[in-house]
Design a binder for these strands. Structure first.
Lengths: 151, 151
DNA sequence: CTTGAAAAGAACTGCCT
DNA sequence: AGGCAGTTCTTTTCAAG
């Protein structure tokens, strides 16, 4: 585990919101010079604390108006069936995240679709035919807020 | 809804994986010049298709080894209680995402903690005391895979 | 840590096909 | 739409305090 001071935390918080900011602009906010800020960001990246920079795409602008969370219970849960399930689910383009979890379900999937009719197609033809699928529970996303987290 | 061609889709797919790539490097991959690639990325950003660029932080490197998904049912669901709940939950730093959903639960929360003992503290002192909370279900994250989605 | 500077590269602009 | 050429800005590295 890596030790961070308050300035590192401020930089991570600022960059979590908008990763396009330059080292110079960030430095002005936290009271540091451009090279000092740049070195801190480089250290955090080399450390692995910053794992990468990803695009944030607007689902709706892309025509995918529906996002649904599925809780999936497997009928048979050997090591082989977990791998079979994961391989098969990774081939469905509508699946955005695959979370292997412990609790009431075995997997949580985030699935996007153009509309409810499109979602029904994905559910019936793609999800329900996955190897080993038992119970499936669905929650339709109404709205979502992402927060900085406890950096 | 915005119309995209195959080149736009290829650019979005590449940038979703790693948003640090330069317009020049991306252009070489898709067979376009640097300015043409840059203008496409700018158009996608002005369009709102690209909503922003965010840091991808390594939870574990930051000392948060535990992530738990909570399904929350509210006991009372008037308009006021939804707002009360959302305001209160937004004040908990350990909550990374707040998803208002339709189905078996009313909200899905992604909560991170340093370890299971820390998670118990958050659950008992922060989550269970939220206004209007009824049933709470938990799923502990074992592993997670993010996929490009149906761009 | 700072300032200042320099080189490389990426972002951005204007013009032309 | 796209390419080319040029300008501006950021990144990246260095030296010196």
């Amino acid at each position: 585990m890596i030790e961070l001071d308050d300035i590192d935390r401020a930089l991570l918080r600022a960059l979590s919101q908008d990763a396009t900011q330059s080292a110079g602009a960030l430095g002005r906010e936290v009271g540091l010079s451009q090279p000092a800020t740049w070195r801190r960001i480089k250290r955090l990246t080399d450390n692995g604390v910053i794992a990468g920079r990803r695009l944030d795409l607007d689902r709706e602008a892309l025509g995918f108006g529906v996002a649904v969370f599925l809780g999936v219970k497997l009928a048979t849960k050997g090591r082989v069936s977990l791998e079979d399930f994961e391989r098969a689910v990774s081939a469905i383009p509508e699946v955005q995240t695959v979370e292997h979890v412990l609790g009431m379900y075995d997997y949580r999937l985030r699935v996007v679709a153009r509309d409810i009719a499109d979602f029904e197609r994905v559910l019936r033809r793609r999800i329900m035919t996955l190897p080993g699928v038992g119970d499936v529970e669905a929650n339709v996303l109404l709205s979502e807020e992402r927060r900085p987290g406890p950096i």
